[in-house]
Amino acid sequence: MGYDWGTQLFASSHRLALLRELRSNPADTKTLTDTLSISRVTVQRHLNHCSNHGWVQKVNGQYELTPVGERVCTATMTYLDRLTVLEENSDVIDSLATIDDSFDPLLLSEATVSVAKPTDPHEPIYHYRNAMADTTSETVRGILPIFSELLIEVHRDLLDAGVESELVAPRPVLEAAPIPISELPSPIFTVYMLEETLEFSVTLTDDRTFVGTYDTGTFVACIESTEPAFREWATEIYERYRRHATRVEPAGGDESDGPT
C-alpha cells in the first residue's frame, strides 16, 4: 500500500503542492486555483483523488487534510527534505556513514559544509582554523585523528588563551607532537590516547560543533553546525571514543592502566 500511495502522490507535482497548501490552511476550490495557478478542473480532479484516498475532506465548504493526510504530507516532505540533503551533501555522506551507519542526513539541514576542491584543497582546514580563531568558548573537547601543524597551532592558541581543553587522539598523533603531552598545562588540558587510527575529527565548543572527514590523512571536509540535534549526535560519537581511550597523566603522574 505504501508504494501505491507514493506512486499516486508523486504522479503529479500539483497533487503534492495541493496537500502542502492545505497543510497550512483549509481552502476552497477557488482559493486553491488562485494559489496554485492551475485550472479549477485540475484542482477539483486532485481534490477528488485525494479524497478517495482519505487524505482530504470537505468541511463547511472548505477542504482540509484528514489526520491521515497530515501524516502523509509530513512523511512525504521529510522524505523529500532528506533527498535534498543527500543530493547537496553527497561528498560527505559516505564518510559520515562510516563514522555512524545510522547517521541521519537531515542533521546536515542547517550545517555549513566546506569541502576540498581541486581549486581550493585547503578550504576545510582554513574554515576550521578561522572559525576556531573567532571562538569565545571557555571549553573545547575534540578528537584529533592526525598530526597537523596547523591544527596543533589552533589548539595551542586556545590553551594559551586559557581555554579548558580535552583531547582524544591516536597514539601516533600524540607521539608526533612537538612538545610532550605530559609537559602541557595539565590544569586546563586533559588528553586521552587511542590505540586505533581514525579518519574523522570532532570539536565541541560551548556553542558550535565541528566534524571533519579525512581521506588517507587529508582533511577533505569540515562540517559546522549550531543545531542541537547535530551536537547531540557528535557528542555521543566523542564520548564513545573517549570511553575507549586511556588518559595521559601529566609529568609526575602515572598513565592510566585502561580506558576511563
Rank of each mutant, 00 (worst) to 15 (best):
T84M: 05
V113K: 02
T203G: 13
E164M: 12
I99A: 01
T190L: 04
D206H: 15
R156D: 15
E199Q: 14
T135H: 06
E196D: 09
D91L: 02
L151P: 00
V154A: 09
A177C: 00
A176P: 02
K117N: 04
V154H: 08
T119G: 07
D157P: 01
E166D: 13
P172T: 10
V168A: 14
P124W: 07
V220W: 03
R208V: 06
E164C: 12
G142Y: 10
E153C: 08
E183I: 00
E153R: 14
E175N: 05
P187H: 07
K117C: 01
M193V: 09
L194H: 07
S148M: 09
S186K: 06
D101E: 15
A221L: 14
F200A: 04
H155N: 12
E196F: 06
D91N: 08
L106I: 15
E175M: 05
P118C: 00
D207V: 04
V168H: 09
V92D: 03
S186Q: 07
G217L: 14
D215V: 15
V191N: 08
E166S: 15
L96Q: 04
P185Y: 03
Y214K: 06
D206M: 15
F189R: 06
L198N: 02
H127Q: 10
I181L: 11
A161F: 06
D120M: 01
V163M: 11
L83P: 03
D104E: 15
D91W: 02
V202H: 12
T216Y: 14
S114E: 07
I188L: 11
I125S: 06
D157M: 09
P118K: 00
P180C: 01
E196R: 08
F189Q: 03
V173M: 01
L184C: 03
A221R: 14
E166P: 11
E199C: 05
L108M: 10
S95A: 09
